[in-house]
Design a binder for these strands. Structure first.
Lengths: 113, 113
DNA sequence: GTAACATATAAACTTTTATTTATGGATTAC
DNA sequence: GTAATCCATAAATAAAAGTTTATATGTTAC
């Protein structure tokens, strides 16, 4: 197990996922959401970026499933979607045929010069 | 554990890693390497891309650590670096504060409509 | 040494993505 | 209803990344 090989469609989707994470600002957004922030205004203040820019990046993250949005009154609350990150990890494992968990001797293995 | 929060430098590095994977061709390269291919000419034939293009993408993958190159005669053999993918997964876990392994009730949890 | 092969690099060009500025849509307060 | 708030979208511009074509570097064969 671990080796299914991926279809073109799956490859494209995976590529897009990586693209969504290819941005320092977007990673900051994710970190802020992980830290408990939720609505756009708070993020705007915390991250010091313009509202449209933030909105655009949130849209990218939403379209790739890493965050989900929910309207609450006139605010929109964003939160992480952990499942998307797990799927990403799964797909990496399938793509390169390796296990991402620490088995196999990491951190302190034998070093032969 | 799991929540270290990342420095700016680490964020930038992580961003670059995602960028290196933001390409269908590069994912195909990784898949081909996972399937056992190694030298550039074989990849060129398998993937049907020009040699300079392939070389450029391999350079990107090398610079981000996902593959390593080794000169063998006049060929250069590339191979995956599994450690880089594990580090990537670790960093995702740190960034968003979640576990990427299947604990926590995935695939078939309770669904309350 | 020269020729041939395998890969890398550089320069010019094309395409994609990010950022700004301006405007629109949805919701609540009045 | 109007005004105010919160967020999204559109258009224009700027920046980054990918692709091609041409050339250079390093290695083996002779």
């Amino acid at each position: 197990m671990l080796e299914h090989s991926m279809s073109e469609k799956e490859l494209r989707r995976l590529t897009k996922s990586f693209g969504a994470l290819h941005s320092v600002l977007r990673l900051r957004i994710l970190a802020a959401l992980a830290a408990g922030e939720s609505n756009v205004r708070d993020l705007e203040t915390t991250l010091r970026v313009s509202q449209p820019l933030l909105s655009w990046h949130l849209t990218q993250l939403r379209q790739t499933g890493f965050v989900v949005a929910e309207r609450v009154g006139r605010e929109v609350h964003y939160r992480l979607n952990p499942e998307a990150f797990r799927e990403l990890a799964d797909n990496i494992e399938i793509l390169v045929g390796i296990s991402l968990s620490d088995e196999g001797g990491r951190s302190g293995g034998k070093s032969k010069s």
